[in-house]
Design a binder for these strands. Structure first.
Lengths: 144, 144
DNA sequence: CCGTATCCTAAATGATACTG
DNA sequence: CAGTATCATTTAGGATACGG
């Protein structure tokens, strides 16, 4: 009987141990080697978050997405889309035409994720002035 | 007069161009080199997201945090906390005692961010079974 | 206890070329 | 168009040692 992750000592409030094993609330990103941590990284990763955010606006082809996610390379977008498709967040539909046409869109699950992600993104964007101001204060009290 | 980022062509719906310059809604993570992208990465990054999530539960000392964020190294936690402090999301309070005692907690802004982040994290954790199932389907239709 | 400094490895990313 | 393959480079990350 080996416990999967002994995150906290037990005295504190929230989110301790417990990853998988049993019935309900079993996943815990705070525990190393919990599969949910990997998925969270796909979702919140540099390109994953932007790709999910872009797909929130509709259905797009590969190169359309590339333009919407400014700065992403072919390789990274391809890799990101594969990971999100594998996790069941993105649906890929290839038309057997010539030239080929491939459409990407969110699955219902992916839509729920991107909804919550966009809530976060919009909040951050909406408070960038506060962040930039905080940075100036932080940097100001330390110039050597 | 050089436009900062020509993300989309204009035909599509949402989130095109516009980063900074003027009055209100000016930041756009989808544009390369928009400062909000950097902050989003601090917030959603591998250790940033877990650190903000851990701090949602209260005030913690450095090594308490290290235990809560299972697997983080001293170096990464230190770096992460500095970035979050600089962005005005985390407050650091050092007592001049011996041995030293340093407490970390969320700022009001950081709390709002972590709230939205946790909404996302909890959703992902709550649907890991769906994700894992999707992965099996994905992998199943492709075993060479 | 709370870190920083250093060194080193592994992973992520970018650039380029090429295929169906 | 929609990618994959390969290679070069950058960056993140871990281990360790040391200092306030």
């Amino acid at each position: 009987m080996e416990s999967v992750a002994q995150t906290a000592e037990g005295t504190e409030s929230g989110r301790g141990a417990a990853c998988v094993q049993g019935k309900d609330l079993a996943y815990n990103v705070f525990a190393r080697s919990c599969p949910s941590r990997g998925t969270l990284e796909h979702v919140t990763g540099r390109w994953g978050s932007l790709t999910l955010g872009a797909l929130h606006d509709g259905t797009f082809r590969f190169n359309e997405l590339r333009r919407r996610v400014d700065g992403v390379s072919e390789k990274m977008l391809s890799q990101t889309l594969h990971a999100l498709e594998r996790d069941g967040l993105v649906h890929r539909e290839a038309q057997p035409t010539n030239p080929p046409r491939v459409d990407y869109r969110l699955t219902p699950l992916g839509r729920e994720v991107s909804e919550r992600l966009l809530t976060l993104i919009d909040f951050v964007e909406g408070h960038m002035d506060d962040v930039l101001e905080a940075r100036e204060r932080y940097d100001g009290t330390r110039e050597s």
